[in-house]
Simulated scan of single mutants.
Amino acid sequence: MRIIDTHLHLIYPDRLSYPWLKGAPAINRPWPADTYWAEVKTLGIEQALHMEVDVAEPDIESETAFVLGLPGIVGCVAACRPELADFPRQLDRLLAIGGTRIKGLRRILHEVDDAVSTPQLFADNLGRLALHGLTFDLCLRADQLHLGLALARKLPEVTFILDHCGNPDINGIGLDPWRADLRAIAGLPNVQGKVSGIANHCDPDWTTETLRPYVEHVIDSFGWDRVVFGSDYPVVTKTGTLTRWVESLREIVGSDSAENQQKLFAGNAERIYRLA
């Protein structure tokens, strides 16, 4: 099964600053491209889309330029600050750096106050993405899915990708109310679902059956044409390995048709992120 990883984080502390890593000691070290490719060469992962790693704001453009030169990286989702009046110029600078290899933008919202994404300026700035065919990845906690729903409703012309299955609190409150909130945001045709980033919400002894109801609900809610695969490497290593995540996901969807599995693992990514 050919796989495109739509959510790879590569970490180079000698070149870029990652303030948040001080609070994540399990992964607070370099995670270079060669280490990643050494693990995934037997998994079928052929290409990867680099996902911004919440670098310090002055490093946003430097990160974008650097990762696009790394092996196997077919494009990137760059960091941005849509809450700022300077966003149009930031967007222009990013496009000047990466051109069509910039496939989308992301502003991590689960680490900032909810009020960051609610002003009209934020929506107006994101509306500019449609002019360039760029997507916007939504990184929200499960209790913030209403924020993504509001943005996607305001901007039907923008394609949103909901990261990490909407970050369900698997170890805490479980399936509900995440299940209904996920169904609601999936009801908007301009929102796609990323099957990624849920193993790290579990204890290290998680099994395929721990993840199954969450993965199946995301696929059932979005449908096979609107889901993509992401590794969330190296965050996935906090409670397991990338190999274990891929093998479990293959088991969960293994009874579905080869056509549907290929949509999840590669085909939809090529279309949604314009990789083909």
Rank of each mutant, 00 (worst) to 15 (best):
G72V: 11
G72E: 09
G72A: 08
G72H: 05
I73W: 06
I73L: 11
I73Q: 12
I73D: 10
V74Q: 11
V74Y: 03
G75I: 10
G75H: 11
G75W: 08
G75L: 09
C76G: 10
C76P: 01
C76L: 14
C76N: 15
V77W: 14
V77F: 13
V77Y: 13
V77P: 01
A78Y: 03
A78V: 05
A78W: 03
A79I: 02
A79T: 08
C80Y: 02
C80K: 04
C80L: 07
R81Y: 00
R81F: 00
R81K: 11
P82L: 09
P82I: 07
P82Q: 10
E83H: 11
E83A: 11
L84R: 15
L84W: 09
L84I: 05
A85T: 09
A85N: 08
A85S: 13
A85Q: 13
D86F: 06
D86V: 13
D86C: 08
F87E: 04
F87W: 13
F87I: 05
F87L: 09
P88D: 09
P88F: 14
R89I: 10
R89P: 00
Q90K: 10
Q90G: 12
Q90R: 14
D92A: 15
D92Y: 01
D92F: 00
D92G: 12
D92K: 13
D92E: 15
L94C: 05
L94S: 06
L94M: 13
L94I: 10
L95G: 02
L95P: 00
L95A: 06
L95T: 03
L95Y: 08
A96L: 06
A96Y: 00
A96I: 03
A96S: 14
A96M: 06
I97T: 04
I97L: 07
I97H: 01
I97G: 02
G99A: 07
G99V: 11
T100K: 15
R101P: 00
R101K: 14
R101N: 02
R101I: 02
I102P: 00
I102A: 04
I102V: 14
I102F: 05
I102N: 04
K103W: 02
G104R: 04
G104E: 08
G104D: 06
G104K: 05
L105Q: 03
L105S: 04
L105C: 05
R106D: 02
R106G: 02
R106P: 00
R107A: 08
R107N: 07
R107L: 04
R107Q: 13
L109M: 15
L109N: 08
L109C: 11
H110M: 14
H110D: 11
H110S: 09
E111S: 14
E111G: 09
E111Q: 15
E111K: 14
